[in-house]
Amino acid sequence: MDIRFEDAEVRFAGRTVLLPVRLDLTERRIGIIGLNGSGKTTFARLINGLVRPSKGRILVDGLDVTAEPDAVRRQVGYIFQNPQNQIILPIVRDDIALGLKNSRLPKGEIEFRVQAMLERLSIGELGGRRAHELSGGELQLAALAAILVTEPRLLILDEPTNQLDLRNRNRVLQTITSLPQQLIVITHDLGLLDGFDRVLLFDQGRLVGDGVPADVIAQYEALAA
């Protein structure tokens, strides 16, 4: 999809959270890095209208996000930093099915798609489990399944490997990189960005770096030093 920022900026309670950004994102694999509080999440949330720009606008495939958030959100999946808050219903299977509830698909078809999605992520056995009993890695994959089942064309992931042990981190990483969808990944886990097409670096609400991973990561390391 074509994501176009037209001088979008965000001010909150008199403070500028994100200085005006003008850019065009079309690459398949896009990373966003920066220190805590640098504006990464705000930038990502502008893309599906969870944050509204104070000035300027954001177009996703020509659709103005502020004017038509529902139409954009049908195409854009968003995985939150804390999957705990993203899972709405008590049983994993019901939660995944929730996204298809408005699709007018017959009940049997919804059940089939939910199970197929669980199996695609190799978590077929989690369907009947209670969300609050899942481990961190399972929780992240269940949240991912709930978003993927609606077949978004673009997926935004906010620190998907945060708080995962190495085995779960690798499992989530493997799942993410094998997805056919266009991806935007916010991360502190720089190893995640191997093979990415483009990386953006934010600092104090300003876009300060934009290029191939190696260059921008080097810039980030210099900035953090």
């Binding site: 958030p69 968003y78 808050n85 709405i88 408005n102």
Partner: peptide, 15 residues
Amino acid sequence: RDADEIAAAIDARGV
């Protein structure tokens, strides 16, 4: 305090 995040997730998922 989680209410904002949970509400945002519900809206993002178009439920």
